[in-house]
């Protein structure tokens, strides 16, 4: 039996972009809420989102009183000459009572391991560690206790990985799909000069424009590029290039991936068998109505599964990007 298979139910790790969303997540049944500070040290650096230091301390207290935990994301890559901002975020997160730090950068992992050896260290999906050698290196060098796996692995691959590594794994079960090997995509940098890794945001809102046509159509533009045109009757998606529709080889279509959201509800039995320690819900940028609906659905699914009841799998379609859900790489049929 692996270390993960000893757990009965995986932790439900839920997103919060605001204190209000954190309270909603905790009340809806989250075991853990993950969130970040209001600056470029985390990968959801959106206007009006995230936590001040005081809000983080209050939120942690709120969660702890209700037996939930808070993981703080400091998961962008420190920029030369500005490393103090990231180190301070690590120190302040620990000061606010964080139960774990989620980091991506090796230098920051080293700083956190040395400065706060008693605080659990988790490796962010942004580090894109998806093979046993890379993961073992992080565990042995920085005492990383858990790795958040990139959304590029099948369930079979996750099961095999879990048998070979000395730490826990956390997998995404719902939300936006970043289809590239995470932490390595340059599409946003190419179009806007800003990237998730360095600035904490893919396709920053300041570079996005929506233009409504007289015929009811809508163009979405990123930087100088028109990346999609939606007819009046079509559902829309995020303004990321990976979900753009382009003319290519004489055809017009989605050349990377159609707008859709990951939903692993139907894969839950397989993922539980694979030995993962935690289920993660994406969406710190979403509203608290989303947080509440998704956390409740997964909490119910976990409890139904534990009782041997059927798991309802179509509960969340109204929240999906482009009105479509996918099991993504978990049911991978391509290489």
């Amino acid at each position: 039996m692996t270390k993960q298979q000893g757990r009965k139910t995986p932790e439900l790790v839920c997103p919060a972009g605001t204190p209000s969303a954190l309270r909603v997540a905790v009340d809806a049944g989250a075991d853990v809420v993950y969130c970040g500070f209001r600056d470029e040290t985390n990968a959801r650096n959106f206007p009006g989102l995230n936590f001040s230091r005081a809000e983080m301390a209050e939120a942690t207290e709120y969660a702890h009183k209700r037996k939930a935990q808070v993981y703080v994301t400091v998961n962008t890559f420190p920029q030369a000459g500005k490393t103090d901002l990231w180190r301070k975020a690590v120190d302040d997160a620990v000061g606010c009572g964080a139960d774990a730090l989620i980091v991506a950068d090796m230098g920051l992992a080293s700083y956190a391991a040395k400065t706060h050896p008693d605080t659990r260290l988790h490796l962010s999906v942004q580090a894109s560690a998806s093979n046993p050698d890379a993961i073992k290196y992080y565990c042995e060098t920085f005492n990383v206790k858990r790795v958040v796996l990139p959304r590029v692995l099948s369930v079979t691959e996750i099961t095999a990985l879990n048998d070979e590594i000395p730490c826990e794994t956390e997998v995404f079960v719902f939300g936006g799909l970043c289809v590239m090997a995470e932490g390595r995509c340059l599409l946003s940098s190419y179009a806007t000069g800003k990237s998730p890794n360095m600035n904490g945001v893919c396709s920053p809102a300041g570079d996005v424009r929506y233009e409504q046509g007289k015929d009811g159509s809508m163009d979405s533009k990123l930087g100088v590029f028109t990346i999609n045109r939606f007819a009046e009757s079509e559902t829309t998606g995020y303004p990321t290039i990976c979900k753009g529709r382009f003319k290519c080889g004489g055809n017009t279509g989605y050349i990377f991936e159609e707008p859709s959201s990951l939903d692993a509800l139907s894969m839950m039995p397989d993922l539980l068998q694979s030995g993962v320690a935690a289920f993660k819900i994406e969406g710190r940028q979403r509203g608290r109505a989303y947080t509440e609906a998704v956390v409740k659905a997964f909490r119910k699914a976990l409890s139904d599964y534990a009782r041997g009841w059927p798991v309802k799998t179509d509960a969340l379609i109204a929240l999906a990007e482009g009105g479509q859900l996918t099991e993504g790489a978990y049911k991978k049929t391509w290489r």
Binding site: R209, Y210, M218, P259, R286, A320
Partner: peptide, 28 residues
Amino acid sequence: GGGDGDSLFFSRDIEISGDTEAVVALRN
């Protein structure tokens, strides 16, 4: 806060134009 802004945008129940940053900040 009774509806998720992104979902309402995906389903075309709301539409936005102009300075997207300002709209996102207001929504949050």
